[in-house]
Amino acid sequence: MPTTRTATGKTSGWRFKTWRRTRLEWLGWLALVALTVLCWRVMTAGTIWSFVEDAPRQAADLFGRMLPPRWDYANSLWRPLWDTINMATLGTAIAIVVATSLAFLAARNTTPSMLVLRPLALFVIVASRSVNALVWGLLLVAVLGPGVLAGIIAIALRSIGFIGKLLYEAIEEIDEMQVEAIRATGASPAQVITYGIVPQILPAFATISVFRWDINIRESTVLGLVGAGGLGLALETSLNTLAWPQVSVILLMILATVVFSEWLTAKVRKGIL
């Protein structure tokens, strides 16, 4: 912060920052620049610059080979598209079921055990969130073998943390008065949850689920790259066989799917709110 220099009580001059602070800030910027340069040098140590210089030609070459797209290939993409949508939808559905129970265990005001179940539920949520869906996909393909099933579970595992976290935060923010009112009628714990808590979190629940479904559509289009089926698998196959005109058709299909799901979720969200 700026400082005033006061001489005999009267303000005589003003400086925006003290010298010490100015110096510290310059040092901070210098450190950031030095770090970036260092990282750059380490990172590019193995870079073959002639490849980089060649990139514009490579790019032109690539797009030349991608065009025109092989439109009739789109007909063999309907099944992968169906698989992609199923991975996203079923994965989201499984995640919703698991995450909802986890959220009730993790929320401070509904957990049956503060000491054991709550930390456990929180740990599951954090672990699920830290690992990308594609990494989950890698692991599950290694375990279960390639296919849609690995994709569904990968999507579900990643989504559990996401939905669980947002949902338990929503539960912790509910209005306790309504819960007390239900409890005062002599309702059982299950009735307290269904009448006092569920109506309050239902809108948040719906928004979170739809939002995650949208993200999952995006992720399931590329999950196939690690062997988990769907459009990504078709992309992987076409890339490996250098069938570039097919690649462009698949990319357009992916783009269309993503745009459609964004449009649909925006529509549904408007309906909820």
Partner: peptide, 24 residues
């Protein structure tokens, strides 16, 4: 924002070769 990072990465790898430069 149109394409997922991993698809963008595929193209950069094809253009600039394998390695962290494409990732960067």
């Amino acid at each position: 924002r149109a394409l997922q990072d991993i698809i963008v990465a595929i193209f950069f790898v094809a253009m600039f070769g394998f390695g962290p430069f494409a990732g960067f």
